[in-house]
Write a protein that binds this DNA or RNA. Structure first.
Lengths: 208, 208
DNA sequence: ACGCAGGCTAAGCGCTCGCTCAGGCGGCGA
DNA sequence: TCGCCGCCTGAGCGAGCGCTTAGCCTGCGT
């Protein structure tokens, strides 16, 4: 049911794929620091300090500070795309799949908010090559949502005059969750996911 | 009709209230630089350079780099709030006022995108005192939208189970326009405003 | 005619940044 | 037993940062 679990302290994306252990600790420290203060305001000394290491240790595992952001961004986008695809390509009609996709995607942005903030808002601190790679992943996210909406229009479930514009708005709504979530602590990721799924079904004119 | 006009090169908020002329040129240069690269990645030398001055000139008109961001943020928020209020407190029923408020607010975020980006995304580069002042302005924005939705529920025009959550989502949708607008250049601010007004009316269950 | 105040610049201070380098420590294969 | 290799540190380099200071123009009141 819930693909993401979270405890008070942190989130749980499978940074497991990052090895060795010290590199993973540095990367997790970087995610926290970037999310709190932004990429440019974060120092390599701060990242290394959070991981309990000296500043020089960072450069054994990563060539530059930007490589850290690049790896975080790529893994984060892949994770988000994976969450979205699982829901979008599941069983059910377009209405059910759209509700599932939105609530999963929102749950990820709320539950893994720290990662999501870095993924969504530090994009243009990357160099041109890395940014282009990430933008390609984003287009896949867009295509996934647009596909469901097109299915719903074709089957007559949805009433959507502007498919591209509506797709944009739906994604925009989900992504912005990373900006405001948890500022006050009311509402769980599940609750926000359910609310947003309902709002999005209304936006596409689903009969409910 | 259109409260904001824009030309190819720039936007038009009334930075007129900033004097003397040199201070205004510096402030406009800072808006552009902050929007392009972010507050922390922008140097005082860059700002002064864009305004055609030496780095030292900045400190005749502003005590610190942060004071620049503070003034931009305050004026920008006041302007956005003003745009929203004009629509929200106009004539008409809740449906008309909500459509008007959303399309005006979105038009501002799209048309004055450079300013809006700084206003919406550089908030926590401010110190605690300045940030608190800005957050108070944001609460007024929230109250304005919530007021319309409550009116619509009371009059039976809207069907909204979760007023606070829906208000949050509506504002979130509008604000995020500043993040993605103009990346490709299709769609004018007016078109996005109209599209979003329609989508929001669907979200609140207005009969249209 | 002249002083002076506001607007500006060239130079640079003290600091911290991203990143490097020489070397130390510890575990593991031979 | 010992040499090697992966991981890590202390010290520090060159650069660029935000911001200051001393002093120079220019226009305006008198």
């Amino acid at each position: 049911m819930s693909t993401a679990k979270e405890t008070a302290g942190g989130e749980m994306p499978p940074w497991a794929e990052v090895t060795p252990d010290a590199a993973r600790r540095l990367l997790v420290a970087a995610v926290e620091a970037f999310a709190e203060r932004g990429y440019h305001a974060t120092t390599t000394r701060d990242i290394a300090g959070r991981a309990g290491m000296s500043p020089a240790a960072l450069y054994i595992h990563f060539k530059t500070k930007e490589e850290l952001l690049h790896r975080i961004s790529r893994i984060g986008h892949e994770r988000a795309l994976d969450v979205l695809r699982t829901a979008a390509r599941g069983e059910g009609n377009a209405t059910e799949r759209l509700a599932d996709a939105v609530s999963s995607f929102v749950r990820w942005h709320a539950g893994a908010r720290t990662t999501a903030r870095v993924v969504q808002y530090e994009l243009d601190s990357l160099g041109p090559a890395a940014r282009a790679e990430i933008i390609a992943l984003r287009r896949q996210v867009d295509a996934e949502v647009r596909g469901i909406i097109e299915d719903g229009v074709a089957s007559g479930e949805f009433d959507v005059p502007d498919v591209r514009g509506t797709t944009l708005a739906v994604l925009s709504l989900c992504i912005d969750v990373a900006r405001w979530f948890n500022v006050n602590g009311t509402r769980t990721p599940d609750e926000v996911g359910a609310l947003y799924a309902d709002l999005v079904l209304r936006m596409v004119g689903a009969s409910k």
